[in-house]
Amino acid sequence: MTQMNLLQAINNALITAMTEDEKVMVFGEDVGHFGGVFRATSNLQEKFGKARCFNTPLTEQGIIGFANGLASQGSVPVAEIQFGDYIFPAFDQIVNETAKFRYRSGGQFSCGTLTIRTPYGGGIAGGHYHSQSPEAFFAHVPGMKIVIPRNPYQAKGLLLASIRDDNPVLFMEPKKLYRASVSEVPDEDYELPLGKADIVQEGKDITLLAWGAQVDIIKKAADMALEDGVSCEIIDLRSILPWDRATVCESVMRTGRLLINHEAPLTGGFASEIAASVQEQCFLYLEAPIARVCGLDTPYPLAHEKEYMPDELKTYEAIKRTMNY
C-alpha cells in the first residue's frame, strides 16, 4: 500500500497496464514528455518510449479517430482528452464510430480496447469551459461504457478494468480531486468491477446516490442529517453506463426514499434516467418523490460557482424535504 493522490493512482494504473501489455499506448495533447497538463501521464514516455506514449496535434476529433483506428487494428489505446469540455469536436467519432463499430460490422471489427480518459467537473474556478460534466450526453450512446471514480483506490482499480474491458470506455476523472483526494492504494495490480455500484455507507431512512466528486458532498450532507436522527444510505454509482439499477433499487426498496446528486445541469441529466427507472421498479415502495439535487440549467458560471454547485447544504435541505414529505 502507498499513499497516493488521484493523479498518482491514475499514473500508477497506466504504468501497470503498459508494463503488462505492450499493445497499450497512451497519447493526447501534451501527454508525452510533459506528462499531461495535470501530470497524469508523467514519466510514461521515459519508461515506455516515444512510440507508446506521445503527444498528438491539437485535434480532439483526430485523437479519437486515430484511437478508433488503433483499437480496430488490435492495439490498446488510452486516449486523453485534456478537458471534458473539449470532447465535443470528437463527438462524431465517439457517437458514430467508437460506439457503433462492433454493431455495424456484425462483430467483425470493434473499438472494444479503447479507453478515453478525460478530466471533468467543477470546483477549480474553471468557468464554463473547464468545469462541465458531460456524462449524460454519452449515456445516450449505446455501445459506450462510462466510468467515474471517487477516490485514488477506485481510480486505479476502475481504470485498469476499463483498459482491459472489451468495450470502449469513457473514463471521467473528477479533476477537483486530482490532488485533493489521497488514500491508500495497493501497489499490486487489481481491478474493480464495471457496471457495479458501491454501497459506501449503509442506512435505513433514505438512499443518497452520486458519483465522482459528489460522493464526498452527499457524505457531508449525510453527516448533517444524522444530527437530526436521519440514517442515510450512500451509494457511489461508479458506472453511468451500464448503470447498476439492481443495487440502487434494492436500496430504495429498503429506505423508501431516493436523492440523486450530480454536478451537471438538472434537465436531461443522468438523474432523470435513474429517477424514471426507479419509480418504475419501486413505485409502491416510495414514501416521497425522488429528489434531484443538481447543477442549474445554465452554463457553468465562474463568479457564482459556489452558488451553482449542488453542495452539501442544498443536499441536506433536500433530505429534510424528502423526509418530511
Binding site: 476529433q61 479517430g65 478508433n68 487494428q73 458514430n96 464510430e97
Partner: peptide
C-alpha cells in the same frame, strides 16, 4: 461507415498500429 471522412484519422491510427506490430 456513412459519416464522411471519419475513416481518415482512423486510417492513420490503423497504420500506426500496423507499424507498431
Amino acid at each position: 461507415s456513412s459519416p464522411l471522412g471519419t475513416q481518415i484519422p482512423q486510417a492513420a491510427g490503423y497504420a500506426y498500429g500496423q507499424k507498431m506490430a
